[in-house]
Design a protein around this nucleic acid. Structure first.
Lengths: 176, 176
DNA sequence: GTCTATATGGTGATAGAC
DNA sequence: GTCTATCACCATATAGAC
């Protein structure tokens, strides 16, 4: 099979950038094409409509989620540390794609929510497997959501160390 | 002074409803006017432009924030319980207005962020006053942000009791 | 494959009747 | 004060040249 055209990846990257930094309203086809270095006509050759562009990004996120959950399960420091650590890291591809799809989910593309719900469920299950406490698992994922909330508003992430310290205290109930 | 026209409040309420339930894209002047039961011309008599409409909503939130912080300080159960409890309550006017302004902050209205930043700071300070632990205060507000994150995506809020129980364990380090 | 037009629909804003 | 036109502009999408 022929290699996928490099322009596709460039377009998805530009779409993600605009969604994260300037919101859904700014991520027009014109702006995406400009930012990707192609013309609008060229963009619409690879993605036949804006809906197809959204689908492309959602599918990309779905693949990244599967990879992230696998990495979470394999992480030597455990799922909790892995989740909170990667939640603070808004620079990498996965977190940027997550934020971009969350932007779409809030807007006129409700089907983008399915991918986000799947991620939440997979994270919660994986954390619960390790800590053996469903309530703590939900809380940890909720903290991760809070970090995303701030990032989606453009605020700086909180210091990671103090969060991990607090979670650690909850995992060992003071050896009562 | 003459009483403020009732149409103003109706328009702000309709604007809030549309932002929360359908996102910024859907909150057009046409839609807001329809939902408020006035014509677009009538809306533009009270708010001379869409920017003026946004300013009106942000000022409304600023007043609600001041009232909320005062209620938080006066709450018999303490700021922590008050914050987490009210964060789960997405139905009341304050939380709906907060979600609506957050929607604007993510879109093309960055000045809406100032009001949100002020709220976060006031909440953190007030919680820190009570728990005497800056890191725990930041964590509690972060949990509150996580609840808002889910609400902004249309998901159900998490069970409140288990969150409060976990916070309580952190406030009393097992009496070591 | 990628580009330059261009058609079509919707959004913010204005003018003027009532 | 509130309404009904109406305008100018921008976004998506299409047609067809290169």
């Amino acid at each position: 099979m022929p290699p996928p055209p490099a322009a596709r990846a460039k377009v998805l990257q530009a779409f993600t950038d605009l969604l994260v930094t300037s919101g859904e309203r700014s991520a027009t086809l014109d702006a995406v094409a400009d930012h990707a270095g192609v013309s609008k006509g060229g963009l619409l050759y690879h993605f036949g409509s804006k809906d197809a562009l959204v689908d492309g990004l959602v599918e990309h996120l779905t693949a990244l989620i599967a990879a992230d959950v696998a990495a979470m399960r394999a992480a030597p420091e455990g799922p909790v540390y892995y989740l909170l650590r990667t939640s603070s890291d808004v620079g990498n591809e996965f977190d940027r794609t997550y934020l971009a799809v969350a932007e779409l989910a809030r807007g006129a593309y409700p089907r983008a929510r399915s991918a986000l719900d799947a991620a939440e469920q997979a994270w919660t299950d994986t954390v619960a497997e390790q800590v053996g406490d469903a309530a703590l698992a939900r809380t940890v994922v909720l903290l991760s959501d809070g970090i995303y909330h701030r990032a989606s508003l453009g605020a700086a992430p909180p210091p990671l160390e103090e969060l991990l310290a607090l979670v650690e205290r909850l995992r060992r109930p003071a050896a009562s």
